[in-house]
Computed example of a mutant assay.
Amino acid sequence: MKYLLAQAKRVDIDPAEAEQFKHALGRLRTLFAHNLDPSTTRDRETRDTCYAWFKNACGSRVPSDDQWEQCLEVLLDSALRYLMLAIEITRAIEQHADSESLSNLWKDRLSRTDVVVNYLGSLQRAAGDLGCEGLNLPQVRDRYSKRWGEVLSLVPASVNIEEVTSRHMEQALIAETSRLLPITAADVMEHLVLQPGEAVEVALRLGQVIYSLHPDLNRDSLLESLGASWKQLQR
């Protein structure tokens, strides 16, 4: 389903309703399967999403006993439309001028479903290459592993999976290291007049090196030092 929804716009189909249903279904599952903590932002958002869904389905944010069946009917109807949209996308791919390459993307996706990547080992190598210190790599792995699994499953079989994995490891480490710096990516873009992209990552790496050598620098001093070093690199 994730693959099909990702191809929807390529075949001129709007996946918005299906994406909304998928999100709501996930939140409903969380509401009924876990004990929510209203003091946390994510759990409050989950609760509010479910309350809004109940209100739309049966007219009440907290359904009464005789309203649950109405909620079930709405849920099943949405699930049916979700399934029918998937079938519609599949048929559109079949008839698309680029159907062969779109089908090959799916084959590549299947070929990646059993790929096992040693995330911790890859993280350790990437951390060594970047000179990252002080990070809890198992925590980084746990925080990003689901996202990496989804991304890597879409990588074509013809692509070097190790190179792609290393790239994602480096991006995660840079993001985590940035949390430890007194400057943010937004600070870097504003101070160096950069657009979002690879240049910002390079600048943050440079900021990381400077800060590791001079950990007493505050935000303004680090940006000033980074700006001077960045100008030298551009010569």
Rank of each mutant, 00 (worst) to 15 (best):
222 L>S: 01
125 R>Y: 05
100 E>M: 07
221 S>M: 01
64 S>W: 07
140 V>C: 08
113 T>W: 02
166 S>D: 15
180 L>V: 09
76 L>T: 11
148 W>C: 05
35 N>V: 09
187 D>T: 00
199 A>R: 14
51 Y>S: 07
193 V>L: 10
69 E>R: 06
85 L>C: 05
231 K>L: 14
148 W>Y: 05
173 L>S: 13
175 A>G: 10
112 R>W: 03
12 D>L: 10
90 T>Y: 04
91 R>M: 05
190 E>T: 14
170 E>F: 03
85 L>I: 03
160 N>L: 07
74 V>I: 06
77 D>G: 05
1 M>H: 11
64 S>R: 09
126 A>N: 06
38 P>E: 03
194 L>R: 00
53 W>L: 12
221 S>G: 01
103 S>L: 06
14 D>L: 12
90 T>H: 02
32 F>N: 10
71 C>M: 01
152 L>F: 12
224 E>W: 01
44 R>S: 02
42 R>V: 04
105 L>W: 07
175 A>K: 15
201 E>V: 12
140 V>F: 05
82 Y>M: 05
89 I>R: 02
14 D>G: 09
202 V>A: 11
215 P>Y: 06
212 S>W: 05
182 P>R: 09
68 W>L: 00
204 L>R: 03
140 V>S: 03
176 E>S: 11
48 D>F: 08
179 R>H: 14
108 D>W: 07
114 D>R: 13
53 W>E: 12
110 L>M: 10
69 E>D: 00
159 V>H: 11
49 T>D: 12
231 K>M: 13
61 R>I: 13
172 A>S: 15
227 G>R: 03
184 T>G: 05
16 A>N: 12
111 S>R: 09
57 A>Y: 04
218 N>F: 02
133 E>V: 14
75 L>D: 00
132 C>G: 03
233 L>E: 11
29 R>P: 02
208 Q>R: 13
193 V>T: 11
8 A>C: 13
79 A>G: 15
118 N>A: 09
85 L>T: 06
92 A>P: 04
25 L>P: 00
197 G>Y: 08
